[in-house]
């Protein structure tokens, strides 16, 4: 009971903190770190170091030794100087979200952040090192700006639900140079990534569900029986390229296969078993397999219909539709490819 209460108080304080943070460091990408948005505080190691200094001062008093005093004061001064060093390690850094890769539920989503340090002025610019980036619940990644002026860091976070995923604020922290102080900040780079349903793999149906009339169509491409050879055109499957003839110095040519009675595959929500999420998962699995086999397939999702096609862009459109099905996300209907920029 008390624990639950404590949790609620904590959550309340937490939400207050985040709201305060939203005012203090408004969302932006790129964002430049400065004394306005960098916090600094001693680490537990730093407090232990303080204890060591106290111990040394005590020793200096009891042994009346000037030099023991001096060591204590030197370490204390070093601690204070380190505040500037630790702060400077973050100060002036420019953070920019470069990309967010879509993924499936249960996977780690990859966000790419570009970290740039201030341009080298006259003389040698100082490198930054020991900078760590990560989402609150993810793994911290190191950014090294010692020799380079910019680094691209991939930070990952596991997604638990389909739809647009907002990882929240990115934590940037550093313990450099001594580990006695931690400088950190939470920045909102406006990151979001599309999360597709977790794929469930069923057997790919031999014949399509859907309208019978389309099943009779002859598919001139993409099947097993060799029909003829023609010159390569952009978009032809790589697997069909006649590499041997190309190696002989000829043009790029593709083998053509013809299949008769090659049905178009329709992935239909209505025709799938299980709960909504399960059905979406099945359809995702089917879409992936179909794309893998380079088959033409279409999607029927209630009111939304994606006409049959093949290729990477088509798969993305289908997955995006599956990911956003039934979700109130406003940009679900824009239909733009899910690059999540």
């Amino acid at each position: 009971m008390a624990a639950a209460l404590g949790e609620r108080v904590f959550a309340l304080l937490g939400s207050r903190f985040w709201r305060w943070l939203d005012r203090r460091i408004p969302p932006s990408s790129p964002i430049v770190l400065s004394q306005r948005n960098v916090f600094i505080f001693p680490t537990p190691t730093g407090f232990a170091f303080g204890g060591l200094i106290g111990l040394l001062i005590l020793g200096g008093i009891n042994y009346q030794s000037s030099l023991v005093y001096a060591v204590a004061f030197l370490l204390g001064s070093m601690f204070l100087v380190t505040i500037l060093y630790t702060f400077r390690n973050l100060s002036g850094l420019r953070l920019e979200l470069v990309g967010a890769r879509p993924g499936f539920v249960g996977e780690d989503l990859e966000f790419t952040v570009r970290v740039t340090r201030p341009a080298a002025g006259s003389g040698r610019a100082r490198g930054r090192e020991g900078i760590q980036l990560g989402w609150p619940r993810g793994i911290m990644q190191w950014a090294e700006l010692y020799e380079r002026e910019a680094a691209t860091v991939r930070v990952y976070l596991a997604a638990s639900r389909r739809g647009f995923f907002h990882p929240g604020r990115l934590l940037i922290e550093t313990y450099y140079p001594l580990g006695l102080l931690r400088a950190w900040t939470w920045v909102d780079l406006g990151a979001r990534a599309l999360v597709y349903p977790r794929p469930l793999f069923d057997e790919l149906p031999q014949t399509s569900s859907g309208r019978r009339d389309e099943g009779e169509l002859i598919d001139p491409q993409g099947s097993e029986d060799f029909s003829d050879i023609r010159a390569y055109r952009a978009g032809d499957p790589v697997r069909h390229i006649l590499w041997r003839s190309f190696a002989r110095g000829g043009e790029l040519a593709v083998k053509r296969y013809a299949s008769y009675l090659e049905p178009r595959l329709w992935l239909d929500l209505e025709a799938t078993r299980g709960s909504l999420e399960e059905r979406l998962s099945r359809l995702t699995g089917l879409a992936l397999q179909a794309a893998r086999l380079d088959r033409e397939f279409g999607l029927r999702l209630g009111a939304l219909t994606v006409p049959p096609a093949r290729g990477e862009a088509h798969l993305e459109r289908v997955l995006r539709a599956l990911a956003l099905h039934g979700l109130p996300d406003a940009d679900a209907s824009t239909g733009e490819a899910g690059r999540g920029r």
Binding site: E110, I139, Y156, F201, L204, S259, L288, A291
Partner: peptide
């Protein structure tokens, strides 16, 4: 076309080795 070999098909997955580095 046959359905054999489909079970071995892996979903398209983003590179994730980086995320796991350091955990194990």
């Amino acid at each position: 076309m046959g359905a054999e070999g489909i079970a071995a098909v892996a979903p398209h997955a983003p590179a994730r080795d980086g995320a796991r580095r350091g955990r194990g």
